[in-house]
């Protein structure tokens, strides 16, 4: 039997909103340690890796490891039927082919149940090695979303280049070019607004806007976003979900012109 209860169902809603752009369906791997999800988008260019720790839930029980393949659009439909301050309980039997979402309103006067059919997904798991990144940038999540949105008006790809001085996002297209430079913040008064760069070596990489834009759908989950880059390695965009876990996106770089 599997049961996970989260008082803030809105967190789960936000997670769902953050991944349903890239994935049509995904397998939720549940174990005693928590819920994990790893899936690539159809084009195999980006990957979503979600981890929700069991201790982050208000109640968590998982007698046997189980994998639940879910259609994310359907799941999203179900969560749209809930209010933000509802409590959600996700339940499944050990060998069940359905999962139940139960929403309880704050005052317990309304309880709704939604049962959803599970899918059998034959998904590829990728073995992601631990990497020491040349550059790790932490910045306000909202700022990152804004930059990506702004720059994607001008071109299809964004060049992220990180040096000692700061990080530069640039693009160019038919109408011209755009550059946004962020300097490391010197004062650490407001942690949420800080831009912090840890750099071993300068890195410049090019990524497709479209995916970065999808990643920023996770902005409501966290105040800060962390970008990790190394040469010839996919970019990691990480959002910490407070007290619950993290959501990471991996994005393969664009093929440079001189590579062809």
């Amino acid at each position: 039997m599997f049961e996970a209860r989260l008082i803030n169902s809105v967190t789960f809603k936000k997670v769902l909103d953050a991944i349903k752009d890239l994935l049509n369906e995904a397998s939720f791997d549940c174990s005693e340690a928590g819920i994990q999800l790893q899936a690539m988008d159809n084009s195999h260019v980006s990957l979503v890796s979600l981890a929700l720790r069991s201790d982050g839930f208000d109640k968590y029980r998982c007698d046997r490891n189980l994998t639940m393949g879910m259609n994310l659009a359907s799941m999203s439909k179900i969560f749209r039927c809930s209010s933000n301050d509802d409590t959600v309980t996700i339940k499944a039997q050990d060998d069940a082919d359905t999962v139940t979402f139960m929403f309880e309103s704050k005052k317990q006067e309304k309880i709704s149940d939604y049962e959803m059919k599970l899918m059998n997904l034959d998904q590829e798991h990728l073995g992601i090695p631990d990497t020491d990144f040349s550059c790790v940038i932490r910045m306000p999540a909202g700022e990152f979303a804004r930059i990506v949105r702004d720059l994607s008006q001008f071109g299809e790809s964004i060049v992220i280049s990180c040096t000692k001085e700061g990080v530069k996002f640039s693009t160019s297209g038919d109408i011209g070019s755009a550059n946004v430079k962020l300097a490391q913040t010197s004062s650490f008064e407001k942690e949420e607004e800080a831009v912090i760069i840890e750099m071993q070596e300068p890195v410049t990489l090019t990524f497709a806007c479209q995916y970065l834009n999808s990643f920023t759908k996770a902005t409501p989950l966290a105040n800060q976003v962390q970008l990790s880059m190394s040469d010839n390695v996919p970019l990691v965009v990480e959002y910490q979900i407070p007290d619950l876990g993290h959501l990471r996106y991996y994005l393969a770089p664009k093929i440079e012109e001189d590579e062809n």
Partner: peptide, 10 residues
């Protein structure tokens, strides 16, 4: 665009 499978083993 490169694919992730070029970097991470399946």
């Amino acid at each position: 665009n490169h694919k992730l499978t070029e970097y991470f083993p399946v």
